[in-house]
Amino acid sequence: MSLSLRLVLILGSALLLVYTFHKVKKAHVQITDTVFWIVVAVFLVLIAIFPQIVYFFSKLLQVQSPANLVFAFIIAILLVRSFLSSMRISQLSNRVNELSQEVALREKELRDQINRNQGK
């Protein structure tokens, strides 16, 4: 891993951390949802400072360039993360749909009740 890649990792992680804290402060994101990003940022800083970790695993997995292992790893994490997000969106949209159905059914009931009372 070149020195410049390590510097970019550190800089990028620092920016990610600052941005995350900023968004928490403005309440744009829930604290629970930032855990992932903070862990990722800390992890990237870690491998930038101690590239030996990456060297060890690239030897183990017979990856020629340690930088490629870093990229592959980040891509894998992002894929998992994106699948989890997609799952969450599905669940949320189901709940929104259920809520609007419920609102519609209750509004209908209310309207019927009002009509019945007026009829009397």
């Binding site: 929104v96 749909n97 609007s100 159905q101 609102v103 519609a104 059914l105 509004e107 209908k108």
Partner: peptide, 14 residues
């Protein structure tokens, strides 16, 4: 039935 937002065919039908 008056759904407050557009939720799609499946949800409207349900």
């Amino acid at each position: 039935l008056d759904l407050p937002i557009n939720t799609g065919l499946t949800s409207g039908f349900r």
